[in-house]
């Protein structure tokens, strides 16, 4: 499960023009990557959980998320083909992995291993509820054509099922006398708030960073160009050296 920031993408979509365009396909691809990231987290949970009865639930959830990703990717592809847009970017280094990590805050360890089982179930419930809410909103957004809205509606419905099964599991635990469920809920709320904040501030820092780097580029690079020696070669053989 991921901390994907649906809200920020939704804001961007609202700002776009009424007509369908390339941007919409990009948004759908981003949703696809977000769902793909969720699938990877659920798969990791299925691999790592020691609560055997949850294994199947996590696996089924992962399979749903993979399917959602595919639906988004296919729909984005159809949109591009329908528009017959020749200006599409045919270039680019394979960066899908980086984008999945960026969009989903996938770290070096699966999120499941950083939370306990109870926190993780709460995390699933809260994240899926957020997803359901945003996809429902998108399904009512008249900027999209009927097919896209139908897709959002379908996804929202299925995310709703995920919320229900997470709620059911929490309810079962409550009945069995498990303590700290509400505390865990509040912790995850805070956890998600933190990651959303991080996501938004990261964008600001990225823009500031770009500006600083652009200044460096226009000030220092021309100075260096004056002394630039073409085909300068570095030859070192020290195995401990990074150069």
């Amino acid at each position: 499960m991921t901390s994907f920031n649906f809200k920020s993408i939704f804001k961007k979509i609202n700002k776009k023009n009424n007509s369908l365009n390339n941007q919409e396909s990009d948004f759908l691809n981003n949703f696809g990557l977000a769902e793909f990231g969720s699938a990877l987290d659920m798969l990791a949970a299925a691999e790592l959980t020691t609560t055997n009865k949850l294994k199947k639930g996590y696996l089924n959830h992962a399979i749903d998320e993979f399917r959602h990703a595919q639906l988004f990717f296919n729909h984005a592809k159809n949109l591009i083909n329908n528009f017959n847009n020749n200006s599409a970017n045919v270039s680019g280094v394979a960066e899908i992995g980086e984008r999945i990590r960026y969009l989903n805050f996938i770290g070096e360890k699966p999120i499941y291993s950083e939370l306990n089982e109870l926190d993780f179930i709460n995390f699933v419930m809260i994240s899926e509820a957020a997803a359901e809410k945003y996809f429902t909103k998108l399904s009512n957004n008249k900027n999209f054509n009927s097919e896209t809205r139908a897709l959002f509606s379908l996804i929202a419905k299925e995310e709703g099922h995920h919320v229900l099964y997470a709620k059911k599991e929490l309810e079962k635990r409550r009945k069995n006398g498990v303590k700290g469920i509400y505390k865990s809920y509040l912790y995850i709320k805070w956890f998600r708030f933190k990651t959303d904040l991080l996501s938004n501030t990261r964008k600001i820092w990225t823009k500031i960073g770009d500006l600083i780097l652009a200044l460096i580029f226009f000030i220092f690079i021309p100075i260096n160009k004056l002394f630039f020696k073409k085909n300068y070669k570095f030859n070192t053989y020290d195995p401990r050296s990074m150069i």
């Binding site: 580029f217 226009f218 690079i221 021309p222 260096n224 160009k225 073409k230 150069i243």
Partner: peptide
């Protein structure tokens, strides 16, 4: 050798200035 690669990238940025802005 990461630094050796880094210096090659800096060299490219210098050699192809100003076209190399977004690359840099």
């Amino acid at each position: 050798k990461p630094l050796k690669k880094f210096l090659r990238i800096l060299n490219s940025s210098i050699e192809y200035f100003p076209k190399s802005r977004s690359f840099f």
